[in-house]
Design a protein around this nucleic acid. Sequence first.
DNA 1: AAAAGTAAGTTGCAATTGCAACGGGGAGAT
DNA 2: ATCTCCCCGTTGCAATTGCAACTTACTTTT
Lengths: 221, 221
Amino acid sequence: MKKYLDLLKKVSLFANINQNDFEAMLKCLGAFQKKYDSGNIIILKGSEVDSIGIILKGTIQIVREDLMGNKTIVSEFGEGEIFGETFACAGVKKSLVTVVAASDTEVLYIKFKKVLNTCSSMCKFHMQLIENMLMLIAKKNLYLMNKIELLSCRSIREKLTLYFENQVERVGKTKFEIPFSREELADFLSINRSAMSRELCKMRDEGIIRFDHNRFEFLGG
Amino acid sequence: MKKYLDLLKKVSLFANINQNDFEAMLKCLGAFQKKYDSGNIIILKGSEVDSIGIILKGTIQIVREDLMGNKTIVSEFGEGEIFGETFACAGVKKSLVTVVAASDTEVLYIKFKKVLNTCSSMCKFHMQLIENMLMLIAKKNLYLMNKIELLSCRSIREKLTLYFENQVERVGKTKFEIPFSREELADFLSINRSAMSRELCKMRDEGIIRFDHNRFEFLGG
DNA sequence: AAAAGTAAGTTGCAATTGCAACGGGGAGAT
DNA sequence: ATCTCCCCGTTGCAATTGCAACTTACTTTT
């Protein structure tokens, strides 16, 4: 475990907790480690989940299986990221998704109940832990709400415009860089890449935006 | 306040808290009431928010304003529902949205910090309150994640199919009722009503679904 | 009973979007 | 330098979708 201390420092769930307390805290939380070979199943859809997972090594995939057995990768998480917290906190007993190891993986588990039930010795980090968890989920919430607004737009033009407005608001300038390639952006907005490219160029020709690779300027419509 | 006790019992934030404790709890939390006339602004975008609002009477609207000043009603909440909890928990200092009273409204406010900081007397309801809050936000999270999956579908057919699959999974039967009119469903899925109607009938003709008003049967594709 | 209103299916048409294939330019490899 | 790969703009075409207008069936109002 000690070799992962540097990683744990960066885990948002442990923010503002003194790293000298980590060892005591993990013990108090009944944390335990598990290893998975690449391709192995970490959580099977329908199985019980009562723990939050912190990825110490490797990458995992959240996989959705529909009634017909079709599988879709919903998301992917890497080292230092956590998974299962939403289900755990929502009181969902059985996992709605399958989690798979995308590479050789090590996971640190914490029983959700132990996070909530402040132990008898009232470890000082407990309240901080709960606050972190609350903030973590609430921030994810904000992100999701924002994404829904984007996806609810009825046309490619609207989606792009809202996305650019968000970026302008975020950085406080009309010039900004985006963290996506064209293909990734199209995927993020759930649209076709070439149709998006067409629209981007139309917007440029109309004087609404300027761009060069990842650098954009939003001049407004 | 007493006249609202029946309402407070039903507020999810106060689940599993003995209603005899309500009065003490509200006092401990420093709760206070405010009234708003219809049309008045409850929270202005950009203003500070450090409280969670519980609607005692009336209806409020969450309004989004973009850079150009265009306003969109994002959602509406009624009696017994709460708002502002996501911003408060995410540690967002300034509100990203405007909140307006859609009718004459009374709101009960609770300072977010008082929810987290268990008071010196360690009121017994505090942990329950935090747990409720966590569950509330996590459940909203699940809902949002699900909605994103729906909205990410690339065609009307896909959206409808996923929606129906979700319903089947939810009730455990292939027959179910939906809580929407056609127009509301189209709105929920961010698609055109008549195009959706066309697709629904196609699916019926292909033997994938049957329906009569709100009652649907999903036979699978 | 007539009138008015509402929800939802229908349809023709236009606009948007997806798809597939191609082309140019730049980065990195050999 | 040449080749290869990848990213992304371009384009023609087909499919999907949105839009608007109309119909039908039902419900509510007067």
